[in-house]
Computed example of a mutant assay.
Amino acid sequence: MKIFIFITLIASVWASYEDAHGSTTYHETQKTVEIPIYKKYAIPIPHPVPVAVPQQIKVPIPQPYQVQVAVPHPVPVEIVKKIEIPVEKPEPYIVEKKVPYVVEKPYAVTIEKHFPVPIPRPYPVHVPVYKHVFHHQSKHHGHGWKH
């Protein structure tokens, strides 16, 4: 029984292959194709050739020439230099001088005295604050007091 199922399976696969690919009348043919061959010829192309051109480059060199104003040699150059010189500061000292006139003693002296005057200030007084409790809601919502 197993051999019969196996042969049936091979036959069905072979039949489906023939249906998809046609019958076994496949044949190959050969055809010659000409392939063109290209030959390369070297054609000389003229290129620019660098030619050395003789050139004379003159660099100007400063030369002394006569000026109407006489310039002394060497030329004086002003140099500003800050030099700190220590300066000795004189210290103060007491000089006793004799007074040429007589000072009368006792002499009149005016004394100004300032007395602070106390100003009565208000002092805190305890005031009782009564909070009323309303059991009924007022007609004006959010105000809290009845008008």
Rank of each mutant, 00 (worst) to 15 (best):
F6E: 09
F6H: 08
I7Y: 07
I7F: 14
T8C: 13
T8A: 15
T8Q: 09
T8G: 12
L9W: 01
L9A: 15
L9H: 01
I10G: 02
A11E: 00
A11T: 07
A11P: 00
A11N: 03
A11S: 10
S12M: 14
S12K: 08
V13D: 01
V13Q: 02
V13I: 12
W14I: 13
W14C: 15
W14G: 15
W14K: 13
W14A: 15
A15V: 06
S16R: 04
S16V: 07
S16G: 09
S16F: 06
S16T: 05
S16P: 00
S16K: 04
S16N: 08
Y17M: 12
Y17W: 12
Y17Q: 12
Y17S: 12
Y17L: 15
E18H: 05
E18S: 14
E18Q: 11
E18K: 10
A20K: 09
A20H: 01
A20D: 01
A20E: 03
H21R: 08
H21W: 13
G22D: 01
G22K: 06
G22N: 03
G22L: 06
S23W: 07
T24Y: 02
T24D: 06
T24C: 03
T24F: 02
T25G: 09
T25S: 14
T25W: 02
T25M: 06
T25D: 15
Y26F: 07
Y26H: 14
Y26Q: 09
H27C: 04
H27Q: 14
H27W: 12
E28C: 04
E28A: 12
E28H: 12
E28G: 03
E28V: 06
T29L: 03
T29E: 11
T29W: 01
T29V: 10
Q30V: 05
Q30C: 03
K31M: 03
K31I: 02
T32N: 06
T32F: 05
V33N: 04
V33S: 07
V33M: 08
E34T: 09
E34C: 04
E34L: 14
E34G: 03
I35C: 07
I35H: 06
I35T: 15
I35Y: 04
P36T: 09
P36Q: 11
P36C: 11
P36R: 08
P36V: 11
P36E: 13
P36K: 11
I37Q: 11
I37F: 02
Y38D: 08
Y38V: 12
K39Q: 13
K39W: 02
